[in-house]
């Protein structure tokens, strides 16, 4: 049982919870995630550890309501508890010898990109953040992101806030303007990550993506989270979720993420659903 200590509605579809999870807080690192199950009848769903406080024994999750489980989750309140929370799962992000990095977040992907940017920024690395949203109302974590980068670029699909356009437009501009970026970290819808990788491949820049296949156990037991990286089968829950984006077979994953489209009876607004 993990008690909800704080709740914040970041936008109409995005909720932040601070959870009591002392053991997880002690071990969590950027790039890792938890799997939770709200109650006995619930699904197990993975959510990134957006932040943690080792002293207070808390972790933060930020999620978008896209289906049954996330909607049920958003209905909880401070003082309620979540039956099962397991983590920290996955390997934490490791970036060696980088000096200047572009971190890109698409939609709720910003919740996952933010802790990565924060970790790197704290190590004295030059960070530019590019954050893309569909429209003004959906913007999250603007202030938080601004504090962990040199420059923050925001764009919206419909031009309702800051620049109109896609993250790839801004990325291309940055890569043309400056030659000394040595890494791109991209987190968001699969389609977005796919096109980012197509672009960075042309510029020969290493690109790390965070993948989000359907998961069950998160320990390497079910194989449901398998993705093809460099032609080999990898389990995102233990080998990832971060991978070298230039080696990922995105089309295969985009297809597999529609596995339960019929069963879930709705379209995935979050990650690459078609």
């Amino acid at each position: 049982m993990n008690v909800i200590l704080k709740k914040a509605q970041l936008n109409q579809h995005t909720v932040l919870y601070e959870l009591e999870a002392p053991y997880i807080a002690k071990k969590a690192n950027a790039g890792q995630f938890i799997i939770l199950r709200i109650n006995e009848f619930g699904e197990r769903i993975p959510l990134t550890i957006a932040d943690y406080n080792r002293d207070l024994g808390t972790i933060t999750i930020i999620f978008q309501t896209v289906g049954k489980t996330t909607l049920d989750l958003a209905r909880l309140n401070v003082g309620d508890s979540i039956q099962d929370v397991v983590g920290p799962l996955g390997t934490s992000s490791h970036f060696e010898k980088v000096k200047k990095v572009i971190v890109i977040g698409g939609g709720v992907g910003c919740a996952i990109a933010y802790p990565q940017a924060k970790t790197l920024f704290k190590c004295g690395i030059d960070i530019d953040i590019v954050a893309g949203f569909r429209t003004h109302e959906l913007i999250i974590l603007e202030d938080e992101m601004r504090q962990v980068c040199n420059r923050l670029f925001i764009c919206t699909d419909d031009g309702s806030y800051k620049e109109k356009g896609l993250v790839t437009d801004i990325l291309k501009r940055l890569l043309d303007e400056e030659k000394n970026y040595d890494l791109v970290i991209a987190i968001g819808p699969l389609v977005m990550m796919k096109y980012i990788c197509k672009l960075t491949e042309l510029y020969h820049i290493k690109t790390i993506v965070s993948l989000n296949p359907v998961m069950v156990d998160g320990t390497g037991m079910c194989g449901g989270c398998r993705v093809r990286v460099d032609g080999k089968i990898k389990f995102a829950c233990v080998d990832g979720p971060d991978f070298d984006g230039l080696l990922v077979d995105f089309d295969e994953l985009i297809n597999r993420n529609n596995f339960y489209k019929e069963e879930e009876k709705h379209m995935c607004k979050l990650f690459g659903g078609k």
């Binding site: 390497g220 037991m221 079910c222 194989g223 449901g224 398998r226 295969e252 597999r256």
Partner: peptide, 22 residues
């Protein structure tokens, strides 16, 4: 011994393919 093996044949990543464990 919970880690499932796959066969490595074409089509193992299609929708509708499960490991028995999953």
């Amino acid at each position: 011994a919970g880690l499932p093996n796959f066969m490595g044949i074409v089509g193992e990543d299609l929708i509708g393919v499960y490991s028995a464990n999953e």
